[in-house]
């Protein structure tokens, strides 16, 4: 890297950190496992209050990117700032605690603690971070969090092994939301759910985002999710983020992978579904107007 380039990079970082409306800023990220480089010179900004969808083919390092941001993976190079705070390698750092309290993470399989009930799982972050919340209030909070994510009340005293895949995801979401985070990481939340369950999950995410003003970092393969709830979409390919924007903006780009992704048979089906919805809504509005 020449001196010029380095300076330019530093300036970019400063700009991103300084601006208030950026929740996550990743600069020059490099991750590699052995000989295999997953990310190289990757830049990404997530704005506050948006739902950012992250897409990419299998093995393009979507999950690795998420793990780098939350500090589970220490990158070889590059900087990660969350709410303006440098987070690289600081997962166990006490000073970064304030930031960690502000995010919730839903892992792919739910990653519930198998020896605790669903409700106790939801209580873990509260118990760890806020011991001043008494046991009665804590139980109540766990209860409404469980209801908020759309789980039935009977799910509370169940152990994760007794739950279906979709319920595990919801329980994982309830735990991720336990502290009312500002920032929510979702790793393939709708993978493995039936279409009705997936749509309900999307709906729930959108509602929560609107009610709580969340910033959501959403890794997904689900085109319907992208179309229905994401404000912007970041595309991971060639070891970096090749484009970020609304789906319409991405469609205007002439990148073969993006074109194939959104204009493939599944992409077209999702587009058609969205325009049908919009058409129906418009027709209803018209009908309302005539009355």
């Amino acid at each position: 890297m020449t001196a010029n380039e380095r300076q330019a990079k530093e300036e970019r970082i400063e700009r991103a950190v300084a601006s208030d409306d950026i929740a996550i800023s990743v600069r020059g990220l490099k991750n590699s496992f052995g000989d295999q480089t997953v990310h190289e010179n990757l830049d990404l900004d997530v704005r506050k209050g948006e739902i950012l969808g992250v897409v990419g083919g299998s093995g393009t390092g979507k999950s690795v990117l998420m793990r780098s941001i939350i500090g589970l993976q220490v990158p070889d190079e590059g900087e990660v700032h969350v709410f303006g705070e440098d987070m690289v390698g600081r997962l166990d750092d006490d000073e970064a605690l304030a930031i960690r309290k502000r995010w919730g993470v839903l892992f792919q399989g739910g990653a519930l603690f198998s020896t605790l009930t669903v409700a106790e799982n939801v209580e873990v972050p509260i118990r760890e971070y806020y011991p001043n919340i008494g046991p009665v209030l804590r139980d109540e909070i766990a209860a409404y969090k469980i209801r908020m994510t759309g789980l039935p009340p009977e799910a509370g005293p169940k152990y994760p092994a007794e739950l279906s895949g979709g319920m595990k995801k919801r329980a994982g979401l309830a735990r991720a939301l336990a502290l009312d985070p500002d920032l929510l990481f979702l790793d393939e939340p709708t993978a493995g759910l039936d279409p009705i369950g997936a749509a309900a999950f999307d709906d729930q995410t959108r509602k929560l985002q609107e009610t709580l003003g969340l910033t959501v970092f959403l890794i997904t393969h689900d085109l319907d999710t992208l179309y229905s709830i994401c404000d912007r979409v970041a595309v991971l390919a060639d070891k970096k983020v090749i484009a970020v924007g609304t789906i319409d903006e991405l469609l205007a780009l002439d990148h073969p992978w993006i074109q194939e992704y959104f204009n493939g048979p599944r992409g077209r089906a999702a587009t058609a579904a969205v325009s049908r919805e919009r058409g129906k809504a418009a027709a209803e509005k018209q009908a309302d107007g005539r009355q």
């Binding site: 009930t117 409700a119 106790e120 209580e123 139980d139 766990a142 209860a143 409404y144 469980i146 209801r147 908020m148 009340p153 009977e154 799910a155 509370g156 005293p157 009610t211």
Partner: peptide, 18 residues
Amino acid sequence: RLIGAVGKIDEPVDIRPT
């Protein structure tokens, strides 16, 4: 709205097995 939203889902949930 927030108070209303949490009030709407106010329903007892068991935390632990009986």
